[in-house]
Simulated scan of single mutants.
Amino acid sequence: MMQAELLKIRINHQGNTALGPGKIELLQHIAQHGSISAAAKQMRMSYRRAWELVDMMNRSFDQPVVVSTTGGAHGGGAQVTAFGQALMLAYAQILQKTAQAAADELHLINQHLKKI
């Protein structure tokens, strides 16, 4: 849906973005790859930056969004928790509901954006 792409919703908490489009994308990649490092590579960001974003999410909520295990014989990994999965779903639903509620206005705006 083209109109939904016009929206970027961020959930702020105590001066930081607890959840937003970049963090949701990071969570999706972590869920897919089971690794913060692999997710960072997919997004072309440093592991340090990805880890900082995960840490910020984990500090923003009252329960973990991502849990990780340190390396060993089989290497480390990361997993999006059930709570993290619920946040991803809730965020997608917020985008969908917002786009539906503002469909007419978004259509008007989209019609008048210059095509590059």
Rank of each mutant, 00 (worst) to 15 (best):
R10D: 10
I36C: 01
V54L: 01
I116Y: 13
A40L: 04
L89E: 13
L7W: 05
L26D: 00
A39W: 01
M2Y: 15
W51L: 06
M56V: 13
Y91G: 02
Q79N: 13
M88Y: 01
I11H: 06
A18N: 03
K115T: 12
L89V: 12
V66W: 00
K114G: 08
A90T: 13
Q111T: 11
L113M: 12
I24E: 12
S46Q: 10
S68M: 10
A99K: 09
M1K: 12
V65D: 00
Q85Y: 10
L6N: 05
Q100K: 11
Q85T: 11
L26C: 01
S46I: 09
K115E: 07
A50L: 02
Q79V: 15
V65W: 00
G20F: 03
Q63P: 02
N110M: 14
R44D: 09
A82W: 06
A103C: 11
S68D: 05
G34T: 05
G84R: 00
E52M: 08
A99F: 03
T81I: 06
M2R: 15
G72T: 10
E105R: 15
I9H: 06
D104C: 09
I36E: 00
T70Q: 13
I24L: 14
A102C: 13
Y47Q: 11
H13F: 11
Q32I: 09
Q42Y: 08
R44Y: 06
I9C: 07
K23S: 00
Q42F: 05
A102F: 10
H29T: 04
A82I: 09
A103D: 15
I30S: 00
M2C: 13
T70A: 11
Q93K: 14
L6M: 12
E5R: 15
A4Q: 13
S68C: 07
T81N: 05
S60C: 08
A78D: 02
A103F: 09
N110W: 15
A50H: 03
G20P: 02
N12H: 15
Q111K: 12
G15I: 09
I116K: 13
N58E: 00
